[in-house]
Structure formats: C-alpha cells, structure tokens
Design a protein around this nucleic acid. Structure first.
Length: 637
RNA sequence: GGGCCCGUAGCUCAGCUAGGAUAGAGCGCCGGCCUCCUAAGCCGGUGGUCAGGGGUUCAAAUCCCCUCGGGCCCGCCA
C-alpha cells in the first residue's frame, strides 16, 4: 500500500485536534482547506469545528504538537499551518522512490467488474461521440485494473432491430456485399446503410405527403423531405452506382413489410437472412475493431444480441415478465408502479427521485422483441459469465430512462443483487459545431478521420524538429484525441472543434508527452555524465532542505504529494478529468522550474540529487497517469 | 406539460459532490527569452455583473426557490 504524504499530515493534525477538543477526527477532516500560498500550506477553518472559533487557541496548541507542522498562525477564523519543509520533502520523495510507478496508486479490495462500452450500432463507423464513450470506458477499465480489480470489457453488438434490417435490405439490392478495394469495411457498411435509410425515409415521406390533407402539415413534411433530399444528393455524389442500384431496387417494393420480414426472419434465425445480416454486421465490426485497437480501447468479449434471441434467453425473460405485466395501449407491458412503492428502492437502484417511469412494453404487435427487454437478458448474462460483482454500462445520458427500467425489470424478476450493482455510467454527448451529426444520414465526423488528422498534424510537428517518424506521429495523434475527450468532465457536453482537438499546446497530450520526454532527457544527460541513477542511493545523499527557501521547488514537492488524492478521487468518481487537470498543473509547475534552474548541471551534488529525484517523481507520476488514460509514454519527441 | 444535464474571461474549460480569505488555467491579443538538461517550452501584460432575481448563512460561483437561455429524454426506435 502506497503512502499518501498529505493524508499523513492531515491525520496527524486531526487526531491532535480531536483529542484536544474531544470531538470526532472526521469533523476536523471536514474543516481542512488549501489556502492561498501566502497563508501557508494547509488551513483549518475553525468555525467549522464544534464550538466555532471559541477554542481557536486550543486548536493552535494542538496543531503545534504535530511534527510535520513548523509554524501555525491565526488570521480571523483561519488556523494557517506551514509544513516542516525538510520533513515533508523527505516523506514525499521517499514515498515516490519506495513505490516507483505505483506511487499514488490506490489499492482496493479486489472486485470483479464488467465494463460494457462503445456498443455502437454496427451499421456505421465510429463517430466522435462514440469515441468519447470509448475513451471514458477504457479509462474506467484501466483505472479499475490499476487498483487491483479484475476487469472484463464487453461490446454489445446490437444486430437485432430495425437498423440492421434496413442495412440488409440495402445490401440485397447490390450485386455484392463485399466492400470495394481500398475502403474500410465499416465505412462501406456505413455508406450502404446511410443511402438505404435516406431513400427509405424519403420514399415514406413522399407517400405521407400524398396522403396528407392539411396544408400546414404538408409544408412541414415538405421541409423535412427537402432536408432529406440534400443528404440524398450528397450520398449519391459519393457513390452514384450504389445509390442508383439501391434506389432502383427499392422502387415499387412495399418497404415496410420488407423490413418487418427481415426483422422477423432474423429473430427466428432464418438461414438466408441470418447469413446476410451476420455477414454485413461482421464487416462493420471488423472495421470498428480496427479503429478501437488503434484508439487503445480494447474489447475482451464481443456479444451478439441475436445470440440472446436465438438461444431462447430473451423468450424466457418475456415469459417471466408476463406475470408482472398488464394491458397497456393495446399490448402487454410491465408496470413498475408497485415496485417503486418499496421503501428506499429508488436509492438502492440509483433511480432519480422524480424520474417518471412509464411501463415497459414487452413485445411488438408483430411478435418481435424490443431493445430494453433484450438488454435484461444481456445484463444477467454479463453478471453470470464473469461472476461479476459489478457491471458498469457506459451509455450516454439520453438513455437514463431505459437504463432505469432495466434495473427495475431485473428487480421485478428477483435479480436484486444484479439490479443494485448494475451501474449506468452516464455521460453527455459530443456536439459538433455547426452541423447536427446523423449516422442515419451518413453525416458524421468519424473517429478515423480525427485520428488521421491528428497524426498528420503530429508528423508535421515532428518534421519541424527533424524527427519524422510515422510510429511516433501515430502515438502522439492517438494521445491527443484521447486526452481531449477525457479532459472534459463526463457530465458536461463536449463541444467538438477541429481547432481544439488539433491544438497541441499547453492543455494537451502532446504538451504532457513533451514534458515527460524532457524528464527522460534529464536522465539521459545524467547517464552521459556517468551519474548512477540508483534512486535509493541518490536519496541517501540528497539535500532535503532544498525546498526550504525556494518557492518553486516547494510548490513542486507539494504538487507531487497531491497525486495520491487525485488518483483516489479519479477512481472513486470514475472521472478522468480530475486526473487530466492535475497532470496539466504538474507539467506547468515542472516546466517553469525546469526553465529556471539546472538539474543535472547543478554543481552541488546533494542539491543535484534532490533535483533529480524531483524530476523522477514527475516522470513516475506522468507515466502512471498516462497508463490510466491509455496514452503511450515516449522517451523522446 | 413533466423529468434530467448545462450556463464561469472574446473562445475552450477547472473550481460546485462536502459553502470559507483577492474566482483559476489554456487559446486569442500585446511585449520579451534559444552559446545552457528538448522553444510542442519559459517570463510579463490584457481580459470576469460566476445567465438574472430572491432566500439560507458570520460567509454563496458552490446550498434552496423562481425566471431566462441551450441540450437531451418522456416510442410497439436503439
């Protein structure tokens, strides 16, 4: 277990105060705040303690008993504390050296965790929104592994339903389902799907227009149709042959009944349809997998939704839910009214207090199943197959309601443990400025294109400094995109813009990689000069007073000591942005210091040793954080 | 109509869960710094009615209520 230097001081202070005032140490812990620099290193807001600031002098006396505190000062209600710098420096640097890359990494009681993420519809390439999911999901997997949990990542292939049926309908109109030479398979599938869908929607709107009586409605439909035709024209320009083939084939067909036939046929496992659908979806998945690998978002298990239907697992769920269902809008649905009346159920299942839960419809009138119902079977499977303590679904916030229904349905079926440990990790979507993304119309910013641009940009930068390398450009490009998507708090929407994703200055992964490479450069130089970098030996001969009268050095020591807190918060809140924000601050502090004074070239040996260890600490923290964020560290750049 | 998320500098974002001292970064803009361990860097300057109003409090960007603005959900779609 790695030590948390800051926590050691906080504990020391709070125990002393709690003894003096005879209060619980946790009350003292709630009174800490980090003051502005001129007011010290740590502050107790005395009015937050029991009895307000009446006992402030006793608080001061108590704090003075703590060895890590060298000076205490009272300003109003604030008890400002200055750390004993040499002692604290020793504590921090020693902790870094003893733990190395494990410094600051929290160790949790081992749990088994399934992370389901991405699970994008297998009918188009990944867009930048799915990329946020991929970045966050892989972060969740990485940080859980780092703390010692067993983690399995899964991708749910949603191949049952209308979208795949439309794709199959389109492919049927073509001579060959194989992608043409030189086009990535998911891009090919995305094109066929978008063309087919746009044509299907346009033809359906046209029919609606003919049947509509009201002029106002007519104008509305016409507007919708016009926008659809703009997309159609663009798609036709991209691939005229394919477009015309599909359009020609669909004309005169009763499209809705064709789609319904495919959906039914696929759910029943009809050979011809199943073969076509599996082929097409496999092509898409092949492409998605390529992109995810490139993006450092690995998937351990790929689950086919259709397998759940074919195996009868979905049927069994439907049968069991029937008992809990009643008549609703002419069909059968599960009503959660009774369950929701159980005391504290919303808290236990983490369902928003005021969220209204409509009944969950069991089956379509044509007998086919519905997504949320199939997902019940899938949730049970995830718990069962991995013997999981916890299943985390990384899914955009727009699915809050179906995810809540899912937990309630599990509870209804008696899967109480599963319902309570199924977590909907909700995040906000990515908005692309100017346009509205629509994969149904083939109007998306693909992750592939973003990664490609980032790579081109990285290559150009590398070329400037005479270090042109495709491999390095690839690593830097991926890092830049991942970091960009991870640095916004997940509960807030990301505004995507090419300018910010390709900005490689200050608040970016390239900046951090550069800082890391600088630390490596320091070690290279040291070895060149024949300095032995055995860290514990260096620590023995280090000057622990080196931050005593030097603010920059002291700030760095303190910042290094914050990493365990940052890691812990990032883990418990599963929030990568806590870590990214810290990394930037650490790099800023290091770079300012680096610019100000020599490290290896320091003439005084013990002083040089302290500086080397400080550099090593920054190096280790960045390395550790990179690993969690799925960024590959580069020794030079 | 009901619910959820969001509104902080011209732009992109921290800070809000657990209220504390003068609200922080980056980009942009202006001016400096490469005989020295990597200039994707460093230093200085510029820039804010924390959407608005009310309340709670010794203390509110942070908690509560209302209003305004943006996004999403309320489907026999996923």
């Amino acid at each position: 277990m790695t030590v948390n230097p800051l926590e050691i001081v906080r504990t020391c202070v709070s125990i002393n105060i709690s003894k003096e005032l005879n209060i619980d140490p946790s009350i003292v812990k709630g009174a800490f705040t980090v003051p502005r620099e001129e007011y010290g290193d740590l502050t107790i807001v005395s009015s937050k303690l029991l009895g307000g600031d009446r006992y402030i002098n006793r608080v001061v006396r108590a704090v003075e008993n703590c060895d890590y505190i060298s000076r205490v000062d009272v300003v109003g209600m604030y008890v400002n504390m200055w750390f004993n710098r040499p002692r604290y420096t020793e504590l921090v640097l020693n902790s870094v050296i003893v733990n190395g890359a494990e410094y600051g990494v929290y160790r949790d009681v081992k749990k088994r965790i399934v992370v389901e993420y991405v699970s994008a519809n297998p009918v188009h390439p990944l867009h930048i929104g799915a990329a946020r999911n991929a970045a966050i999901g892989s972060f969740i997997a990485n940080i859980n592994r780092a703390v010692g949990n067993d983690v399995q990542t899964r991708f749910y292939i949603n191949d049952v339903g209308r979208q795949v049926a439309i794709l199959v309908l389109g492919i049927k109109q073509l001579r060959s389902a194989e992608p043409p030479e030189g086009i990535k398979p998911d891009h090919w599938i995305g094109l066929v799907y978008a063309i087919t869908n746009t044509i299907v929607e346009a033809l359906s709107l046209r029919r609606k227009l003919e049947l509509e009586g009201s002029d106002e409605r007519k104008r509305e439909i016409q507007r919708e149709l016009d926008s659809l035709l703009v997309d159609a024209a663009r798609l036709r320009e991209q691939a005229p042959d394919i477009f015309d083939a599909i359009l020609g084939g669909l004309r005169g067909l009763d499209i809705e009944s064709e789609i319904s036939k495919i959906m039914k046929g696929y759910e029943m496992g009809e050979e011809e349809i199943s073969k076509q659908a599996r082929n097409a979806v496999s092509l898409c998945i092949e492409g998605l997998n390529q992109t995810l690998k490139r993006f450092k978002a690995e998937i351990d298990v790929w689950d086919w939704e259709s397998d759940l239907v074919w195996s009868g697992e979905v049927d069994r769920i439907v049968e069991e839910l029937r008992k809990a269902s009643s008549e609703y809008k002419g069909t059968l649905a599960v009503n959660f009214k009774q369950i929701l009346e159980i005391e504290g159920i919303r808290d236990r299942l983490r369902i928003p207090r005021n969220l209204e839960i409509p009944p969950l419809v069991l089956l379509r009138s044509n007998g086919t199943s519905l997504y949320t119902v199939r997902d019940i079977a899938y949730s049970i499977k995830k718990f069962r197959e991995y013997n999981a303590d916890r299943v985390i679904n990384v899914i955009a916030s727009e699915q809050t309601l179906p995810q809540a229904q899912l937990r309630l349905a599990l509870y209804t079926l008696g899967y109480h443990r599963e319902a309570e440990n199924l977590v909907h990790y909700s995040y906000e979507i990515v908005n692309v400025e100017g346009t509205k993304m629509s994969s149904r119309r083939g109007r998306i910013v693909t992750l592939d294109s973003v990664l490609e641009e980032a790579k081109v940009r990285s290559l150009a930068e590398l070329e400037k400094r005479g270090a042109k390398s495709e491999e390095m450009a690839e690593i830097i490009g991926v890092a830049a995109v991942r970091f960009y998507l991870l640095s916004v708090t997940p509960s807030r929407p990301v505004k995507f813009s090419w300018d910010s994703v390709l900005n490689f200055e200050r608040n970016s992964a390239p900046y951090l990689l550069y800082t890391f490479a600088r630390t490596e450069g320091v070690f290279r130089k040291a070895r060149e000069l024949g300095i032995d970098l055995s860290w514990s030996k260096i620590l023995e001969k280090a000057d622990l007073h080196f931050a005593q009268n030097n603010l920059r050095r002291w700030r760095l020591v303190k910042m290094i000591s914050e990493y365990p807190d940052v890691f812990y918060r990032s883990y418990t809140e599963l929030d990568p942005s806590i870590m990214t924000t810290y990394m930037i601050r650490l790099a800023d502090e290091f770079n300012s210091w680096y610019n100000e004074e020599p490290i290896v070239l320091e003439a005084n040996e013990s002083l040089r040793n302290s500086k080397l260890i400080t550099t090593y600490a920054v190096n280790q923290i960045l390395r550790s954080a990179f690993r969690i964020l799925g960024i590959e560290a580069l020794e030079r750049l």
